[in-house]
Amino acid sequence: MSKLSVPHLLGIKPLTTEDIHLILNTTSQFKDVLNRPIKKVPSLRDVTIANLFFENSTRTKLSFELAEKRLGADVINFSASGSSVKKGETLIDTVNNILAMKVDMVVMRHASAGAANFLAKHVNSIIVNAGDGAHEHPTQALLDAYSIQEKLGTVEGKKILIVGDILHSRVALSNIFCLKKLGAEVAVCGPLNLIPRHITTLGVQVFLDFNKALAWCDVANMLRIQSERQHITYFPSLREYQMFYGLDAKRLQTLNKEIVIMHPGPINRGVEISSDLADGPHSIILNQVENGVAVRMAVLFLLATRHDA
């Protein structure tokens, strides 16, 4: 297995386990590159990549842009605000106009689930999904898996807990697909009304009691409450949410073991995780960000250099 089985990265679901291993192995090579004095290779020097962000992003956008530049690609950036999208242009028209300027790859974040799949069907370019609505965020899942593997040696057999707003989270869904394919045990935990009804069909456990869930897990991935996607009120107050599902030192002390703490960002300090834990020794939050660049380099490299012999 030396090339991806898919021409686009639309989600984790279409990937095979071999694809995921290939991406994670290639990530290690790029991590070496990023730790050198000259953190740049010319692999994609003849490739032009458009970053289309129809939704706000800090980490993912910067991380993709940095990954592209470290690979020597030419980069153009587009954000929906201040563009012709506001004048009523359709997604396909926008993208085809950008592709007419000889762009080879498109990295897209969009608020609608399925936007990346839609684009892959209708335009002739390599598409990388950088998050589509509450559907998937594949590169986040890959960097999470890589970070767990880096910290614990392997993902297989580990017990990984995803806590918070599972219902609105694309990170949760991509993580579940990715971790299950790598052989981990996955559980979710949160208020019942923020847990999708049929989630157990994906082979995950559901915990409503956060303390029990913590006692079970090796890794806790804390998610943010996605207020921008919540159109009704799911719990009385953030303070109450924090009391039941917020991770703080006191709660951690009741465990007689050490767990790894992750967060995909952005953090709402004092809600899902307390400041001291986010900055503490068990947290690998900044490692996740660091690995994000290497993972995205691997994905872009493997997709751009994939050839159909």
Binding site: V41, S43, L71, T305, R306, H307
Partner: peptide, 16 residues
Amino acid sequence: TFYRDDFRKKTLHPNR
């Protein structure tokens, strides 16, 4: 591997 001029002509295998 990342410096080669023949990617897309064959599948490349990065090594350490």
